[in-house]
Design a protein around this nucleic acid. Sequence first.
DNA 1: GCCAATTGCACAAACGTTTGTGCGAGCTTA
DNA 2: TAAGCTCGCACAAACGTTTGTGCAATTGGC
Lengths: 345, 345
Amino acid sequence: MANDTAHTATLVEVAAAARVSVSTASRAFNGRGEANRISASTISRVQQEAERLRFQPSQLARSLQSQRSGLIGVIVPDVSNPFFAAIAREVTVQAEAHGLSVLLADSRETTSVEIKLLGELQSRRVEGLVVCPVGEESQHLVHVDQVVTPIVLVDRCFTGLPLASVHSDNVHGAKQAFKQLLTHGHSVIGCLQRLSGTLPNEQRLSTVRNEMQQAGLVLDDSLIAGDNFTESSGYESAKLLLASRPDVTAFFAFSSPNAFNALRAAEEVGRSVTDDLSLVAFDDSPFAEFMQVPLSTVSQDLQRLGRTAAEVVLKQLKTGKKPRKRTHSFPVKLNPRQSIQDNQT
Amino acid sequence: MANDTAHTATLVEVAAAARVSVSTASRAFNGRGEANRISASTISRVQQEAERLRFQPSQLARSLQSQRSGLIGVIVPDVSNPFFAAIAREVTVQAEAHGLSVLLADSRETTSVEIKLLGELQSRRVEGLVVCPVGEESQHLVHVDQVVTPIVLVDRCFTGLPLASVHSDNVHGAKQAFKQLLTHGHSVIGCLQRLSGTLPNEQRLSTVRNEMQQAGLVLDDSLIAGDNFTESSGYESAKLLLASRPDVTAFFAFSSPNAFNALRAAEEVGRSVTDDLSLVAFDDSPFAEFMQVPLSTVSQDLQRLGRTAAEVVLKQLKTGKKPRKRTHSFPVKLNPRQSIQDNQT
DNA sequence: GCCAATTGCACAAACGTTTGTGCGAGCTTA
DNA sequence: TAAGCTCGCACAAACGTTTGTGCAATTGGC
């Protein structure tokens, strides 16, 4: 009932209160008393005082001394995007299960911010990193992995880089989705990209090109929307595409938000998904099946992506060596629903 | 090109390389050289060596010395829930704009986990806390605010507690939503709760009771689904409600996931939203207007909630005193769409 | 009742910073 | 040329822990 100095008690104060040295207090408090021949009475005295003073050891000091921050850094382009949120959550849960905490950072789809954040996380001495990179640049990531701390990339990976990566099988996913459109007789198909230039996007795009070619068709560039970095929304690009190519009969949206943008854009120009426009999208949503037209989607196993990413980092932390298996690619699942209909034209 | 000892360079090494003392290196590196009469040549020498060795100051050590961790703790019940993800993002962005980093934790809707996480964040000496509490218990939060660090609650607030809170106007929101149902002639209305016992939930519930009473109706307990803590999904409870009260003609879902659960449950028992079931939900979603039946919702201004929460903490950090205004309540917006139809019975 | 072994603890260094103070060398001024 | 200034830097303490080592005091054997 005496001094509530508003500052958290330190070990020094606990030691003083228990009339022992700081070292003894430390060992007693941390259960290392037995091994260090601290008498039972002393141990309990220390623990009582610690309790009474509400002593909470400073992780800052501990980390400094132990050279282990107990922190995992997570960088995503947009936490509010359900895709990244799901991954962040999974990593968080896994990390916490291993006694680690998560430092979350949001790069806002900007490489320069990503680099800045990477530096800040480094300076906080995170022990591992899970990064959904913006995907434009990679060298800063390689450097981190080599000299600083284990890192694993999720989703926006790079090819030919010595970095651990976890992602979905974009090629197969795109192939499945696109085949659905072809099967239903569509040949003028608009693609609504994610961030252009990033691997998942390019893989999906080139898969589309391949499929078109094999079907004896060509994918004109005017059918590819969102080929600039600035608009993340995709709404404008979808509208532009609808205006410049009114002959389009189907959309392949590379992301869930894009699907939504396509719907909005189509509605505004008087086109209606399903009557005269088909739609298939990457990434599922709990709402997809309850849409005006239940949305055909290709869903990724977000939980597995996140969990695997966490596991790769955690294992590397434990064993201290780079994982043998560098790339993890997970299958996607096609959810055929009613947003794809036969081409009427 | 010499020693890549795989460990990050320390100031000691930089100082040695620049042939100055650590203190001088510190001041030179931090731009405090001028003020401390360090010669220009020394300054540049230090900075060069720092650059060469890729020196990155340890925030751990800095924090220990400065007694400022530069960390804001954020605890939410479920990061993957878009509602909380949006808030987490907003806080993250605000914090980063002020040079602070965010420690994110997920309480998994469990009070005991929340308490544990709170302790861990404290031990990391976070300077402020933004918490979307599970909402069952509050005393651990009060204690934190009083003796440890500024804290602001979001969404799941408590009444009569000396804690800063940010939330939406649940009463008015519920009133608007529910009035819609009454206006359309519904009288047997099922309520799909969030976590029972939490303030937003109780406010919405009692508002519903009031409205019913004023309309000369009664809200039987059998019309209140999800009155147990274990199921967060609400799907089972919705099905039970539909089974026990087949006369129900409308649902008021207290959350976006619940709306989705209602849809799924209704479909499985052969009821169809709009034909013989109306639905209004708290929380909007970009998909709401593209649903099979465009969903009538009451939307909260998530960005504003998150931003305000961050601001309250940040201001308190800056000024050092408790904010004058303790409670921030923001208006919600009714989005009338087609999921509410006249009662046919 | 003496030596060795054991018990119970304190001392001090270290982790990587920041910051108050001290101190010598060079310059001015008289 | 002696006294005083200024300049440029080094020294050392401190932040709160952990941990290796040293040193009394007690115990035990004979």
